[in-house]
Design a protein around this nucleic acid. Structure first.
Lengths: 220, 220
DNA sequence: GCAAAAGTGTTCTTTGTACACCCATGG
DNA sequence: CCATGGGTGTACAAAGAACACTTTTGC
């Protein structure tokens, strides 16, 4: 059996959750992928697949699952999160086109890749419960309002701004930058940056953080 | 790169969490494994590896993680749970010896397998939070006392029997068999069997169940 | 001075945790 | 009749959800 690597890259933009796809030769869209016949370390191969297809570097990435592909190959799937604003995408060599697609409006994908996207989405939503995933989808400096908006897209429901603020600050996952930003109308918001640490958006989820002393994060 | 499969098989016995290991040729102990050069579907290959080494069949199994092995192989690791009483182990062909080892007192393992055991244990404990893993470690019929004992081993702390009972029954993960069993001294306990469904042992964990509408269970 | 977004604090309800007691059996 | 584990119910503490109000800016 030969080894492939495939990456489901997500971002949040225009109030929607989006997935990165590219077209190489034929008409079908595909996830960033490498192989069959990967030689590098899996994590590196996944990072390079994204870089080769769209030019984006240094994005958060974790292994998802390894799929059988009709007995011939195995595909090691990865989940990646990116702030589309910070990392503009551009077609790499041999790539005809790269684009963001709304996750609920995808074109036909290469064989088996629907499962990768579906499971990536599931994992992303689950991680919302115990990791500050939003910081990987935001610029280096961001307002709490922006952060809340990201979570609302991921969770598909509105959050109470006051409780959200209290919970995020209490969790200590962000730190003030000292700057503020006036966005037009309304009082200017303070700018924060990531301070590491775990986080859960709402009550139920916050509990899970403590319950799972170490969560279920992958090794290494 | 060639594909291997390795399985961390856990059971609970004698008040301890135990791991299944075997010796094939040389002196080093190893997990049930297949490959390099696996041809079957990964899940099947994992099940067969356990069967070939120890003769145990039909046990609960899920994929854990795929590890690099110094650039040459990838090892797809699995987690399996088993009731050692229900599935007696016996060395398969070419196997010199199979044994249960307390998870905190393992011998030297084949290359990289420590990581498989460590992550398997982590995942097992995390799953405790949202899945009734104990039923996979118990006989078909069991008392709530036995079930509680399993969770106490997994979690490493004592649970309140009254709250445990209430929570398990409320969650609907077990159903009464109608029988009872007198175990010597004390009032005979009702016997239950698994009824499917999700479950969390204690408060924090129970919340996580609802929060993660679909949890983070692997595909298919 | 009004609309819009940011920021602060309080009340109420839900949920978890701790605990006291009775039941059934073996020795 | 007492020790042992099984089974039922209640009181208290903690945590989350809902919510009213003030502040700072642009127009």
């Amino acid at each position: 059996m030969s080894v492939r690597v495939e990456v489901a890259v997500f971002t949040v933009g225009e109030g929607r959750l989006q997935v990165l796809l590219g077209r190489v030769g034929g008409g079908t869209w595909t996830l960033p992928a490498a192989g069959p016949g990967v030689t590098a370390a899996l994590d590196d191969a996944a990072a390079r697949a994204v870089e080769d297809m769209a030019g984006a570097r240094g994005i958060a990435m974790e292994q998802l699952y390894t799929f059988d592909r009709d007995g011939a190959d195995v595909a090691v799937a990865y989940l990646a999160l990116i702030d589309a604003g910070r990392h503009p995408i551009a077609p790499g060599p041999d790539v005809v086109e790269v684009r963001w697609f709304a996750h609920d409006d995808l074109p036909a994908l290469a064989d088996g890749q629907d499962a990768v996207v579906a499971y990536g989405l599931q994992r992303l939503r689950a991680k919302t419960a115990y990791a500050p995933v939003a910081v990987n989808l935001l610029p280096e400096l961001f307002t709490l309002g922006e952060m809340q908006a990201v979570y609302e897209v991921l969770l598909g429901r509105a959050l109470d701004a006051r409780n959200f603020r209290r919970d995020v600050l209490r969790a200590g996952v962000v730190e003030e930058s000292g700057d503020v930003r006036g966005e037009g109308r309304g009082r200017p918001a303070r700018l924060y940056r990531s301070a590491g640490g775990r986080f859960a958006v709402d009550a139920r989820e916050r509990r899970a953080v403590r319950a799972l002393s170490s969560g279920d994060d992958p090794p290494a």
